[in-house]
């Protein structure tokens, strides 16, 4: 049982990377639009399915599908994923214009209820078009490689998942730290009324928030598909609880906290399978969540509010 732990730690790092990418969006939405987006998980699934739909489209454009090196997918899939991310944020921004914008003054809870309605409709739209059964990005089977001296087996795809997550987290950090828009996002999250007073156009910042949050959500969905080898319409909803646990653990509203929380929750969930039934993985996240609410509701990196 204990001998499996190094391997589980590695799996945890993989799923933690995916949770972190999902959590960043939840955290940004929370800090800028000031509500919890319960449709975030389903935005992940949307991105995963749009990518699936775009793979044949990329094929007709002549983008080769041959696998890159040891990975199980090729340029065709990567192009489909990038375009899928863009399509996801276009849809999400359209939903903002159509629905959320009209409810900005209606209060946070109305917005949260709305996100639940959108979540359900979105998930069932995916189910309507693709059915509830699993869909596969690729039929290729990838063998795990034994890492010398460490008691773990690693698939190249999993290393890809971790590297993409690390790369995007680094890019996000540079964006928030050094670009004017990134700073304006932090300012808006810090003090929205003062941000307005300094001349920041809040609507534009909201637009950016959705673009980043939805793109990263779509990417998280695609990477979940790469890691699990299949996608279902429930993919995002099933991860939502873990994502929220990660976000609260790290400190809600703090994107860096979401990253830390994602890794901790991912690792805890995987390591827990050495001791309890796999069916209870999300319950582990729930346990972490409740524990955190009791001990330190502001989260590890949270500010006092």
């Amino acid at each position: 049982m204990l001998s499996r732990i190094p391997q589980l730690l590695f799996y945890g790092l993989v799923s933690g990377s995916i949770l972190a990418l999902g959590g960043i969006g939840v955290s940004l939405t929370y800090s800028i639009l000031r509500f919890s987006n319960f449709a975030h998980g389903d935005m992940m699934a949307l991105g995963a399915y749009l990518t699936l739909a775009l793979i044949p489209v990329a094929g007709t454009l002549g983008i080769p599908s041959a696998a890159i090196g040891p990975l199980s997918f090729g340029p065709r899939f990567i192009v489909a994923a990038v375009v899928g991310m863009a399509c996801t944020f276009v849809i999400v921004v359209a939903l903002d214009r159509l629905i959320f914008r009209r409810l900005r003054k209606a209060g946070r809870i109305t917005l949260m209820i709305t996100t639940i309605g959108i979540a359900l409709s979105m998930r069932n739209a995916l189910q309507f078009f693709w059915g509830p059964q699993p869909q596969y990005y690729t039929a290729r089977i990838q063998l795990a490689i034994q890492v010398p001296r460490l008691a773990i087996r690693v698939k190249p795809d999993q290393l890809f998942v971790i590297s993409v997550a690390v790369l995007l987290v680094a890019l996000l950090h540079l964006f928030l730290r050094y670009t004017k828009t990134g700073k304006a996002m932090r300012a808006t999250s810090d003090n929205p009324s003062l941000a307005q007073v300094t001349g920041i156009n809040t609507e534009r910042i909201i637009l950016w928030t959705w673009v980043i949050g939805a793109s990263l959500a779509a990417l998280a969905g695609v990477l979940a598909g790469v890691e699990n080898k299949f996608i279902t319409p429930e993919l995002g909803w099933q991860m939502l609880l873990s994502i929220f646990a990660a976000v609260i653990l790290g400190g809600i509203g703090n994107p860096y906290g979401a990253i830390l929380g994602g890794v901790i929750v991912g690792v805890s969930e995987e390591v827990s399978t050495a001791f309890i039934s796999t069916g209870y993985k999300p319950a582990v996240a729930f346990g972490i969540l409740v524990l955190m609410l009791l001990i330190r509701p502001t989260g590890l990196l949270g500010r006092r509010s």
Partner: peptide, 10 residues
């Protein structure tokens, strides 16, 4: 309110 919402989903 968000925390109650998340905990009740959980």
């Amino acid at each position: 309110a968000d925390y109650l919402a998340i905990a009740t989903i959980g």
